[in-house]
Design a protein around this nucleic acid. Structure first.
Length: 922
RNA sequence: GCCCGGAUGGCGGAAUUGGUAGACGCGCUGGUCUCAAACACCAGUAUUGAAAGAUGUACCGGUUCGAUCCCGGUUCCGGGCACCA
C-alpha cells in the first residue's frame, strides 16, 4: 500500500465532520481550554500559504490539549464587515453581502483542506444580524453608562443623574469630555436638551465634536490605528484633520486599567510595550499661569512633567486649535495669528509629518507671569503644541527641552540653563540627571528630587496639582460607510435615543448605490424610510473593530438569542487561554477588545476582567520572488550568472514556473503574450533565475496557494512544513523546494507500517534502543509544544523516525505512542495508520498522550572530556549515576596516574554532569 | 529622535541559555538501483590545509579555566511610536 494522501485526507475530513469529532460541549468533568485564532477578513484574493501559519500552530496546540484530556474550545468565524467588499460594491454594484458570501465559501473550502479541528457549529460572522445584534446591544449599554472614578468602573447613567439632582457636579468624579460645574438647582432648571447635552459628555458611547482623521478618498473618518504616516492603512489614501461630530467610545476612561492589566498577561514584552506606549502614561503637574492680554487678566493652565524647570521658563506656547489662543490673542496680533492658524489648518497630516521639526509659530501679543519667579514671559502660538494632549498649552524651557530649544533659537528667545555644568550652547540638555542651579529653593537638589519638591511646593501654594496624562484617545466610532453595523440610535428632536432592546437587531437597509450622496451624506441616507417611529435613524455605521471586539465571547454561546453569552457558558469557558494572531492588531483590536471586555465585566455580563490570557504573535511568511533579466531594448533574456555582461532590466517571474531557480522556458513563453517569441542566453543549457525575499503578493508573482501544495504533497506535509520553516514568532520566507524533506519523512513513516501490501506492525516487547528513541521524542516534543517551538519538534520527529526505521522497528508498543504524539502535527496520516495498521477504534484525538519516562533515556555511561585550562587532554567514561564529588575525585586520581601535571598543581575541578571536566591549574 | 527585536555555512535554521558550534531539512558533490529518468537508498558537505592542525557565531574590547550565550561600546537589518511637553 502506498501513502495515498489524497484519499486519506478526504476520508478523515469527512469522518471528523460527520462524527462532529471536534464539537465542544460544556463538560464540568473536564478542565476547559480555549484556543482562539484571530478570525480572518474574507478577501477576494483567497488564502495564500502565509495565512494558515497561525491557524496551524493553534490547531496543533488544540489537538495537543485534547490529548492531554482538556475540553478544548477551538472555533472559527469571519470578520466580514469591511471596506474592500464595499469598495468592490461601489465599482460593480454588487451587494457586499453577495461578494462576502462568495469569499467566505472560498475561505472555508481552503481552510477545510488543511484539516483544522474547528468546531464549525460555532461559526460566527460579524455581518450576520444575529451576531451584530449583540454589537448594537453593547453599544446601547455603553451609551447608557458613564465611568465613575470613585468606584473605578462603568456605572448606569441614572446614577449620575441622581447625583446631579442631589448635589450638581460637586463630588462627582467621572470621566467626561468637558469640565462643567453646576449646582443641583441649576441642573433642575436645565431644559431636556441641555440635560442630554451635558449627559452626552459623560456617556461611555457618546457623540462629540473632535478633530478626526478624515479620508476624502474613502469618504469616511478613520481611527488613529487605521492611519499610518498620514495615509489610510486600507487603500493608502491621504488623510487630513477635520473637526466633526462623531460617535466615540470613551476608551480613555479605561487607560489606567488597560495599562495595569498588562502586568498579569502572558504576552510578549514587545507587544506589552507597544500597548504601553500607545496608552502613553506620563506623570507630571498642571500649573496655573496668570496671562495678560490687552490689559485683561486670564488664567492659563499648562501641563508639564518637568515642574523642576519652572525657573527656566522663558516663554509659553499655545496650540493653534486651543481655545486659549482666541482668548489670548491681542488686537495687534489678531491678523498674524489668524493667518498662522489658517496655514496650519490647510496642511494635510502628511505635510505635517514631512515638515516635522521645521519651526513655525507666531507671537500672540500677550504675556504670562511665572507663578514662582513673578517674571513676565511672552506667549506664542505654534503647531508643535498639540491641542489634544494635556491642556493644549505649555511652559517652554528651552534649556531642557529640545523642541522648546529649537523654537527659542528660531525666535531668538533667552535660554536659561538650570543644571550645574550643562552645556546648552549647541543643544538642550533633556536628560533628567544632574544638580539644579539658577532655581531658587531647588538649587542643589538632584533633578528627580527637584521634580517632587517643585510639585509639592506648587500644590502647597495652590498654583497647581499633580496630574497624570495619557496619550490614549477616545475611539472614533462612526464611519460614513454602508457595509458595517448600523447604529441602533434615532434622533428625537435632535436628542440621540437608543432603540428599545426588542427592536434589535436594526438590520442594514437595502440601497441601490453604495456611494455617499451628492450632498456628502453617508450611503444610508439613500435608504427609503430610514426612520424609527417617525424619527430619523443614525446614518453612519460602526467601524471594523466593532464586530471583532467581543467575538470571542459569542463563540462560547453562539446561538443564544437571549444574551450575548449565557452566564453558564461564560462561567465555564471564562476567557481565552491561548490567542494566536498577528502583531498588526497590537494597538487596534487588542486594545478595543480589552476595553470592551472590561466594560462588560463592570456591568457583570462576563466573569473575567481580561479576555486573552496568553497571546502568541505568529511571524509573517514572506514570498521568495524569482527574476529574469531582459537585455534592454530586446526580447532576449540572459541567465543570472551572465547578466553582468549586459545591460538588463530585472523582471518578476511567476514562481510557479520556476523550479529550483531554474526557469521552465516553455511555460515562460506561454505565460504572457509578450514573451511568446522570447530568446534566451543560457548557462550550461539552463536558465537560472535571480531571487529575493519580499512580501508575498500578487504583483510580485510570488504567491503560493495552499490548495496547490495540498494537491501535490497533501495537507499533512503542508502543516509540517509550515512549522518546520522556522520559529513561529519570526518572519521567514516560504521556499517550496524545501518541502520535499518533510514529505519524505511522512513517506518513510508510512513505510514503517506498510511494505507494498503487507502490514508490518507486530506485537512484541520493545528493545532498550527503541524505547530510548521514543521517550527522547516524547520528552522533546511535549516541552517544545509547551514553548511553541514547533520547528524543533518536527526535527525531533524526523530524527526519531530515522532511528526507528534503521532499527526496523514495527512494534505496536512503539508505533502507537509515536502516532499519537504526531497526530497534532499530521492528523490525517496518523489517523489512518492508527485505524488501519494498528486497528484502533475511534478518532486518534480521543487517545491519551503517551507518558514520558526519563529512565529510558538515561545513558549508562557518559563520556567526560578532561581538559587543562581549556585544552582537552583525554576523555574518560564514567557511570552516569556518579555524583559530582565522586567524578571530581576520580578525575583527580586519573590525573595523577596519567602524570599530566607537568609540575602544575590543581586548584579547581569543574564538573558539569554529562559534559566536560575542566581542571584549572597553576 | 525614542522604545523593542535581531545578526550563526550556499539557504531555512539548531545548540539542554556559560561547557565538543553548525542538530534537522534544503541545496550541492560522488555513488548504488535503472536502457534512461523519477522515486528510493548510501557517503561527503563551515573556512583553510596534502595532513596534523589552525581559524571561525556582524565588529571592537572586557569578565571567565572556558563566551553564540554575561558586561561595555560600534555597525547594519527588522518592527513599533513619533513634535505626547
Amino acid at each position: 500500500m502506498e501513502y495515498n494522501f489524497k484519499e486519506i485526507e478526504k476520508k478523515w475530513q469527512t469522518y471528523w465532520a460527520e462524527h462532529k469529532v471536534y464539537a465542544a460541549k460544556v463538560d464540568e468533568s473536564k478542565p476547559k481550554y480555549y484556543v482562539l485564532d484571530m478570525f480572518p477578513y474574507p478577501s477576494g484574493a483567497g488564502l495564500h500559504v502565509g495565512h494558515p501559519l497561525g491557524y496551524i500552530a493553534s490547531d496543533i496546540f488544540s489537538r495537543y490539549k485534547r490529548l492531554q484530556g482538556f475540553n478544548v474550545l477551538h472555533p472559527m468565524g469571519y470578520d466580514s464587515f469591511g471596506l474592500p467588499a464595499e469598495q468592490y460594491a461601489i465599482q460593480t454594484g454588487q451587494h457586499p453581502a453577495v461578494t462576502t458570501e462568495k469569499n467566505i465559501a472560498r475561505y472555508r473550502s481552503q481552510l477545510d483542506r488543511i484539516g483544522f479541528s474547528y468546531d464549525w457549529d460555532r461559526e460566527i460572522r460579524t455581518c450576520d444580524p444575529d451576531y451584530y445584534k449583540w454589537t448594537q446591544w453593547a453599544f446601547i449599554k455603553m451609551f447608557n453608562c458613564y465611568y465613575d472614578y470613585d468606584i473605578d468602573k462603568a456605572s448606569p447613567i441614572e446614577n449620575l443623574i441622581s447625583k446631579f439632582e442631589a448635589g450638581g457636579t460637586k463630588g462627582v468624579n467621572a470621566a467626561s469630555s468637558s469640565d462643567l460645574e453646576f449646582t443641583a438647582e441649576e441642573w433642575k432648571s436645565y431644559t431636556e436638551g441641555q440635560k442630554s447635552a451635558i449627559l452626552m459628555d459623560y456617556r461611555i458611547a457618546y457623540q462629540g465634536e473632535t478633530s478626526v482623521n478624515w479620508c476624502p478618498a474613502l469618504g469616511t473618518v478613520l481611527a488613529n490605528d487605521e492611519v499610518k504616516e498620514g495615509i489610510s492603512v486600507r487603500g493608502g489614501f491621504p488623510v487630513e484633520q477635520k473637526k466633526m461630530t462623531q460617535w466615540q467610545l470613551r476608551v480613555s476612561a479605561y487607560a489606567e486599567r488597560l495599562l495595569a492589566g498588562l502586568d498579569n498577561l502572558d504576552w510578549t514584552d514587545s507587544l506589552k510595550d507597544m500597548q504601553r506606549n500607545w496608552i502613553g502614561k506620563s506623570q507630571g503637574a498642571e500649573m496655573h499661569f496668570k496671562a495678560v492680554c490687552d490689559g485683561q487678566e486670564h488664567d492659563m493652565l499648562i501641563f508639564t512633567t518637568r515642574a523642576d524647570t519652572v525657573f527656566g521658563v522663558t516663554f509659553m506656547v499655545l496650540a493653534p486649535e486651543s481655545p486659549w489662543t482666541d482668548i489670548l490673542t491681542s488686537k495687534a496680533q489678531k491678523e498674524a495669528v489668524e493667518e498662522y492658524k489658517n496655514v496650519v489648518k490647510k496642511k494635510t497630516e502628511r505635510e505635517r509629518i514631512a515638515e516635522t521639526r521645521k519651526v513655525t509659530g507666531v507671537f500672540s501679543g500677550s504675556y504670562a507671569t511665572n507663578p514662582l519667579t513673578g517674571k513676565e514671559v511672552p506667549i506664542y502660538v505654534s503647531e508643535y503644541v498639540l491641542s489634544t494632549y494635556g491642556t493644549g498649552a505649555i511652559m517652554a524651557v528651552p534649556a531642557h527641552d529640545s523642541r522648546d530649544y529649537a523654537f527659542a533659537k528660531a525666535f531668538n528667545l533667552p535660554i536659561i540653563p538650570l543644571i550645574e555644568g550643562c552645556d546648552v550652547s549647541e543643544s538642550s540638555f533633556d536628560a533628567k540627571d544632574g544638580i539644579m542651579c539658577n532655581s531658587g529653593f531647588l538649587n542643589g537638589l538632584p533633578v528627580k528630587k527637584a521634580i517632587t519638591a517643585a510639585i509639592d511646593y506648587v500644590e502647597s501654594k495652590g498654583i497647581g496639582r499633580r496630574k497624570v496624562n495619557y496619550r490614549l484617545r477616545d475611539a472614533i466610532f462612526s464611519r460614513q460607510r454602508y457595509w458595517g453595523e448600523p447604529f441602533p440610535m434615532y434622533f428625537k428632536d435632535g436628542i440621540a435615543c437608543p432603540l428599545p432592546d426588542d427592536k434589535l437587531p436594526l438590520t442594514l437597509p437595502e440601497i441601490d448605490e453604495y456611494k455617499p450622496t451628492e450632498t456628502g451624506e453617508p450611503p444610508l441616507a439613500r435608504a427609503k424610510d430610514w426612520t424609527y417611529g417617525g424619527y430619523p435613524l443614525e446614518k453612519s455605521t460602526m467601524p471594523g473593530f466593532a464586530g471583532s471586539s467581543a467575538y470571542y465571547l459569542r463563540y462560547m454561546d453562539p446561538r443564544n438569542s437571549e444574551a450575548l453569552v449565557s452566564k453558564e457558558a461564560n462561567a465555564y469557558w471564562q476567557d481565552v487561554d491561548l490567542y494566536i494572531g498577528g502583531t498588526e492588531h497590537a494597538t487596534g483590536h487588542l486594545i478595543y477588545s480589552r476595553f470592551w471586555n472590561k466594560f462588560l465585566y463592570d456591568l457583570g455580563y462576563v466573569c473575567k476582567d481580561e479576555p486573552f490570557r496568553k497571546l502568541i504573535n505568529q511571524g509573517m511568511i514572506q514570498g521568495r520572488s524569482n527574476f529574469v533579466y531582459r537585455i534592454v531594448g530586446t526580447n532576449t533574456f540572459v541567465s543570472f550568472g551572465l547578466k553582468d555582461n549586459y545591460k538588463t532590466t530585472e523582471i518578476h517571474v511567476d514562481v510557479n514556473i520556476v523550479y529550483n531557480d531554474r526557469l521552465d522556458i516553455e511555460a515562460f513563453k506561454a505565460w504572457m503574450p509578450d514573451y511568446h517569441n522570447a530568446e534566451f542566453i543560457l548557462e550550461d543549457g539552463e536558465y537560472i533565475c535571480g531571487w529575493a525575499i519580499e512580501k508575498m503578493s500578487k504583483s510580485m508573482f510570488n504567491v503560493v496557494n495552499p490548495d496547490l501544495v495540498c494537491d501535490t504533497y497533501g495537507a499533512d506535509t503542508l502543516r509540517l512544513y509550515e512549522m518546520f520553516l522556522g520559529p513561529l514568532e519570526q518572519s521567514k520566507p516560504w521556499d517550496t523546494k524545501g518541502i520535499d524533506g518533510v514529505n519524505r519523512f511522512l513517506k518513510r513513516l508510512w513505510r514503517m507500517f506498510y511494505d507494498k501490501d503487507n502490514c508490518l506492525v507486530t506485537d512484541g516487547e520493545p528493545t532498550a534502543a527503541e524505547l530510548k528513541s521514543l521517550h527522547k521524542l516524547i520528552g522533546k516534543v511535549c516541552s517544545d509544544i509547551e514553548n511553541f517551538s514547533f520547528n524543533t519538534s518536527v526535527s525531533a520527529f524526523m530524527i526519531a523516525v530515522n532511528e526507528l526505521y534503521d532499527l526496523k522497528c514495527s512494534k505496536a508498543a512503539i508505533l502507537e505512542p509515536l502516532l499519537i504524539l504526531l497526530s497534532p502535527f499530521a492528523p490525517h496520516i496518523t489517523e489512518e495508520l492508527y485505524h488501519t495498521a494498528l486497528g484502533r477504534e475511534g478518532s486518534i484525538s480521543g487517545a491519551k498522550l503517551p507518558e514520558y519516562i526519563e529512565a529510558y533515556t538515561i545513558e549508562d555511561n557518559c563520556t567526560y572530556a578532561v581538559s587543562f585550562n581549556g585544552k582537552t587532554r583525554f576523555t574518560v567514561d564514567l557511570p552516569k549515576s556518579l555524583g559530582k564529588e565522586e567524578v571530581e575525585a576520580r578525575v583527580r586520581a586519573l590525573e595523577q596516574t596519567a602524570k599530566y601535571t607537568d609540575g602544575l598543581t590543581i586548584i579547581k575541578v569543574i564538573v558539569v554532569p554529562g559534559k566536560i571536566v575542566n581542571i584549572v591549574v597553576k
